[in-house]
């Protein structure tokens, strides 16, 4: 039929390095994944989970008048307290487990649903599939957790009281700190996302490896300097806008400069994703048996 011949002439060319094709394909994957994973009822639990720190800051700032007064009167202390809440609760718990949930399910969820092969049957490089899946997880986690971070910060500044808060934000170091916190959150999603995507691909039961990573990241402060650098939290920690004390047991290691931390995290992420795209060639068709 003549329409067949016409059709094959509009077909996208599968040349060696076709970035515009790959970007189009990544967008197509994003569209499918975001709609499927982050739009429906299934995602509600995740949103509630991510709201916990915001609710906590809200309670501290508004419901507990002492808390609010404390923040107002002892601003440096309050900032350090927030730094600890940020690192302990938001980074190490919310972002960590949120990314675990989001990224480990990107492939596993489809293996369970037996729908992954629809991607495998497209004219699509496996690396592009990994990238598309990863970006969809990244988009969801970055939106979610920067909102968590911003919401928590909002209540901190709200409790500080007007006009001191506005002065601190716009005439003082406030804005820089806020942006740094947001940046750390984004980097955390980037790094943890890659780690959990790979864990979800390599392990049939990813819970145990995920908990091992969790233990490693929590005990990071005890580790000797060399091992310390093999972690994500180390780099995030050194980026903190408020210097945080890791406690008396912590090993001392000279702070890594942001000029090293940020590129390190990005290179690490790229490496892990590269590993994932090698691995995915070996992922076979979800079996019927």
């Amino acid at each position: 039929m003549s329409s067949m011949i016409e059709a094959s002439t509009v077909k996208p060319a599968a040349t060696q390095l076709d970035w515009s094709l790959w970007l189009r394909q990544i967008r197509a994957i994003l569209r499918i994944e975001v709609k499927k994973n982050f739009w429906g009822k299934r995602a509600l639990l995740l949103y509630l989970f991510a709201a916990i720190p915001v609710v906590l800051m809200f309670l501290l700032a508004i419901v507990d008048p002492n808390g609010s007064a404390d923040i107002r009167n002892k601003w440096p202390n309050a900032q350090e307290a927030f730094g600890n809440i940020y690192e302990g609760l938001i980074l190490r718990t919310m972002v960590f487990f949120g990314c675990a949930w989001i990224f480990m399910n990107l492939f596993r969820g489809e293996v369970v649903d037996k729908s992954l092969h629809y991607y495998f049957l497209c004219s699509l490089r496996r690396e592009v599939l990994v990238a598309g899946k990863y970006f969809s997880g990244l988009l969801a986690s970055v939106v979610l957790f920067t909102l968590t971070t911003a919401g928590s910060l909002f209540f901190l500044y709200y409790a500080r009281g007007y006009p001191a808060n506005v002065d601190y934000l716009f005439d003082g170091p406030g804005m820089g700190q806020v942006l740094t916190y947001l940046g750390i959150t984004i980097l955390a999603c980037l790094g943890y996302g890659a780690v959990f995507l790979v864990i979800g691909l390599f392990f049939r039961n990813p819970i145990i490896p995920a908990l091992l990573v969790y233990g490693w990241e929590w005990l990071n402060f005890l580790l000797p300097p060399v091992l310390k650098k093999i972690s994500i939290i180390h780099y995030l920690h050194t980026l903190s806008p408020i210097p945080l004390n890791e406690g008396p047991l912590a090993t001392v290691v000279e702070a890594t400069s942001p000029w090293i931390s940020v590129p390190s995290l990005i290179v690490f992420t790229a490496l892990v994703l590269f590993l994932a795209s090698i691995r995915i060639r070996g992922v076979s068709h979800p079996s019927n048996h």
């Binding site: 996208p12 394909q25 967008r27 709609k35 499927k36 991607y119 049957l121 004219s123 699509l124």
Partner: peptide, 28 residues
């Protein structure tokens, strides 16, 4: 083109979305 044996689909799609989504993944 491969039409497999298993009666499984990505969650929550209409027939039209199902066909079109993967065409877009092809790059159209």
């Amino acid at each position: 083109g491969y039409c497999g044996q298993f009666d499984s689909f990505p969650k929550g799609m209409t027939g039209y979305e199902f066909v079109k989504s993967f065409l877009r993944v092809h790059g159209y």
